[in-house]
Nucleic acid binder design. Structure first.
Lengths: 343, 343
DNA sequence: CTGAAAGCGCTTACAG
DNA sequence: CTGAAAGCGCTTACAG
């Protein structure tokens, strides 16, 4: 059942049937109606998308590669919000989003093997195999929250400003003993001076930069703890526990999820938040406003980030003028998890 | 830059180059290595996926159509969890998931126009345009939490059993004045006897059936309120407010999100939960355990549902024996939002 | 182990 | 307004 079936059935050329579906202005209304109803009658659902994609050189699909597999990323509300915003913006332009998992055990490498018109890369190392595969294919790509790569448009948030505001907030509340809790950086309750930022991701580096500058105003030198892993893990939990053995009066966390972990562990030990321990998160995860005490955090506009990424890619697909890198704003949101230093 | 480029460069046939990439056993290791390195050198990223899809009749992509647009569905943790599980299971089998939005303003209908090997339809009416488009294409499809459609495998949860347990729980706590809050059903604080279930979705009908049977044991006749909309909306909020003017002692909600809405509104009016009002949700949304008081709810195993849907589709794709419909288990999880009836 | 032939189902200029 | 020609880039049997 192809274009040909319909064409022969009606005694017209395949071309005319193709036009009936794809270029209605190329034939008379009358003929088109006849073709469409014949197609309906014969049970022809329309031109085969795979064949059309090959002939047109265009699939209508955009790829999304997420830090880890979709399985992991979808446990993080921030990543989910991003995917949601991207999918929405793309849908408005007629594109569908395909989730690209990293290469599986069966030899399939989606970034290399899936037909698509372009891709958005979220929080990935430029060395990731999906990233390099996409570049080899010379597909239009947009890099979100990643290390800058020459020739690849870059979208991200202004990590430093929000972090600065968070640190400043603590300083104003009189805190002098502050711990910073991060991931993707190996640090075991070490003084800030001992930490090398060279290997840190731009996200972590940006936030650390803001936090440190904010604290420096008051001469505060924080302690830093982190894990080499990208997310909360046992190493970080243990280091947080160690920190709470002799707790600071305030904690700056690199995400709301980490902040909540600190909050839970403090509560388990009877440390009062915010009376004895102030906690500031990052992201303004939807859950931040619902927990008790509600979490003071740094808001980033996930919808705006998703829209920006989608539009950057769309303009690449339309071969418009190259998009300039964007740094979306962040801002402190003060809630109930921070208070004056007890000391 | 195609297979041909490499073939001519090396003086072999295109076929042999194709085999080097796709059927390594069809040529000598030595020749294959030469071909691969020539490809690398010339900057050939491998066979074009769109052309390959046409020739093979297989794309490696599976579609997912969600109740509303991805934009809406991704605000619901239950839907997100489902997508996550499906994407994970599919990835293990080498398939990628493409999110199919409903037809946009630009004439693109993803369910009709995107190349894919099959699709999973989540919580959709069989009359939805995406559903009919997929059927017209005769693609393998799996229907999740939808109305049964002849010839389409069906996956869903056992709504009635969990709902029955929830109602029984309230009965044991001595509640006799109970309200049921649903969506996708128009009911304005009406006695259960006046509600027609004919138009209800199988999900709502299943839960109502369980709730009613559970309450009937004790001769309790609930009041029902709902909105025609699929989700929480102003109509339902207003009806909840009206219910709280003369509150029952317990509420059975069709989702945790609705339960939390009831909880928030009760709190605003100074109605104590659970002392004056017991609330039971449905789903065991991740947020249910985090709110205060933690929500008593009916757990469904979203991961299992996603896996079941993915495997049902995979067996269809492999043309294995048709899958039998599945009803996954549900169970009551008692937390802190339910207590003995005050009266 | 290698390659010539046929085909996957469509669309894009272009000529009439 | 309609159609014959060429082509999109690959793979699947099959013959040597």
């Amino acid at each position: 059942m192809t274009l040909k079936t319909i064409a022969e059935h009606l005694g017209v050329s395949r071309m005319t049937v193709s036009n009936a579906f794809s270029r209605p202005d190329q034939l008379s209304e009358d003929l088109r109606a006849r073709i469409l109803s014949a197609a309906e009658e014969l049970g022809y659902a329309g031109p085969d998308p795979a064949a059309r994609a090959l002939a047109r050189g265009r699939t209508g699909v955009v790829g999304m590669v997420l830090t880890n597999s979709p399985r992991d990323a979808f446990t993080d509300d921030v990543a989910v919000g991003f995917v949601r915003a991207v999918a929405g913006s793309l849908a408005d332009a007629g594109y569908s989003l395909v989730l690209l998992h990293s290469s599986g055990s069966n030899g399939v490498v989606p970034a290399r093997d899936i037909a698509m018109d372009g891709a958005i890369i979220y929080s990935c190392s430029p060395a990731a195999s999906a990233f390099t595969a996409l570049r080899e294919r010379r597909l239009p790509i947009v890099n979100v929250e990643g290390l800058p790569v020459p020739g690849v448009p870059d979208i991200g948030i202004d990590n430093a400003t929000g972090a600065y505001q968070a640190a400043e907030h603590l300083v104003k509340l009189g805190h002098t003993r502050v711990a910073i809790v991060v991931a993707a950086l190996d640090a075991d309750n070490a003084p800030a001076s001992e930490i090398s930022l060279e290997t840190a991701s731009p996200t972590i580096a940006g936030r650390l930069d803001g936090w440190m500058r904010g604290l420096q105003q008051a001469g505060v030198v924080p302690t830093i703890l982190g894990t080499p892993a990208l997310e909360m893990d046992e190493i970080l939990r243990e280091r947080i526990d160690r920190m709470l053995d002799d707790p600071p009066t305030a904690v700056l966390a690199y995400s709301d999820l980490v902040a909540l972990e600190v909050m839970d562990r403090a509560r388990d030990r009877g440390i009062l938040v915010p009376e004895q321990l102030s906690i500031v998160g990052f992201d303004d995860n939807p859950i931040a406003a619902r927990v008790s005490p509600a979490l003071t955090t740094v808001r980033q506009d996930i919808d705006a980030k998703g829209d920006a990424a989608a539009h950057a890619l769309l303009s690449l697909l339309r071969e418009e003028t190259p998009v300039s890198p964007q740094r979306l704003p962040t801002a402190l949101v003060v809630r109930a998890s921070t208070a004056h230093s007890p000391s």
